[in-house]
């Protein structure tokens, strides 16, 4: 703070000092916020890295440090697992389920977003109805759906009831993605095709769809990863054949071993690979679109 005499005597110097003060304070804020951000990133990533590191501990290693050597022991245990804690069938189920959810999400969310572009009566209500899938917590929807299935006499299974419920969660994310993409879409391109005599369907297939394809891939990624990791909704609707998150939780209830860290690391790496593939497809699509422009 500049003192009183300085204030009255030299306005130019005061202004200069003030400007310097602002700049300095702005820089200081930047440093403080930057430190907070970096510390948080560290806080967020450190457990994930630790999990990965501990999964390579020796055969006598416990669930925390010291690791007692470095080995693939726990991964081998995972591979030769007994029927009780065999993670391979749940992994297969989760993968197939995630693929199915991804495909369904893509088709339904493109249809839903295209419908909203038509501004039909009640589209506001429709928007909220879909948003409900994100807002309604998994434990409530899962529990309610399980009761409904019980009333209807349908046995819960991962490939029927769990699938229906997973889509209610993945669809809104895909829908919002597609809405955002269509918001930025230049409809003059469609007009050009339509004026040239293309039918609406041909225009959609040949002009609209290729342009929004990156968004479609984003919707597919949401569909895949959200279903693959879904726990609360699966818990009530999966029946006897467990999906991967359920199998992990069941194992955690029995006993915590580094084997669980190995499966955690494996699925996390798998998620990263999935993101990588989708991101690459996204990037390649953008590149090829850019290439076609004159």
């Amino acid at each position: 703070m500049p003192d009183g005499t300085l204030l009255q005597a030299r306005p130019a110097a005061r202004r200069k000092a003030q400007r310097f003060g602002h700049k300095f304070r702005s820089r200081l804020t930047g440093w403080v916020l930057g430190t907070v951000t970096l510390l948080f990133l560290l806080y967020q990533w450190l457990p994930i890295f630790t999990l990965g590191l501990l999964s390579f501990s020796g055969p006598t290693g416990g669930t925390t440090f010291p690791m007692n050597g470095v080995s693939l022991h726990w991964y081998r245990e995972l591979w030769d697992a007994s029927i009780m804690n065999d993670f391979k069938p749940p992994l297969g189920r989760s993968f197939v389920l995630a693929l199915a959810c991804s495909a369904t999400t893509v088709v339904l969310s493109v249809m839903a977003a295209q419908a909203v572009r038509g501004r039909f009566r009640g589209n506001g209500l429709f928007f909220y109805l879909l948003l409900l899938g994100i807002m309604a917590p998994g434990i409530l929807v899962g529990f309610g759906f399980a009761l409904l299935m019980r009333l209807l006499g349908v046995d819960p299974a991962w490939d029927s009831t769990a699938f229906v419920l997973h889509v209610t969660y993945t669809l809104p994310f895909g829908f919002l993605t597609m809405l955002a993409v269509f918001n930025r879409f230049d409809s003059r391109l469609e007009e050009a095709a339509l004026t040239l005599g293309a039918s609406r369907w041909t225009t959609f297939r040949r002009v609209t769809l290729p342009i929004v394809l990156p968004g479609v891939i984003g919707a597919g990624l949401f569909g895949f990863s959200l279903s693959y990791d879904e726990y609360p909704r699966s818990l009530f609707t999966t029946g006897a054949d467990l999906t991967l998150p359920l199998a992990v939780m069941a194992q955690l209830d029995r006993q915590l071993t580094p084997e669980l860290y190995a499966i955690g690391t494996a699925t996390t790496v798998f998620s990263f690979v999935a993101i990588g593939i989708f991101t690459f497809a996204f990037w390649a699509m953008r590149q090829s679109l850019r290439g076609r422009q004159p």
Binding site: P47, S225, Y231, M249, T267, T268, S271
Partner: peptide
């Protein structure tokens, strides 16, 4: 985009 469950564990 990774499992919340695994991140909790």
């Amino acid at each position: 985009w990774t499992s919340t469950l695994i991140r909790a564990i």
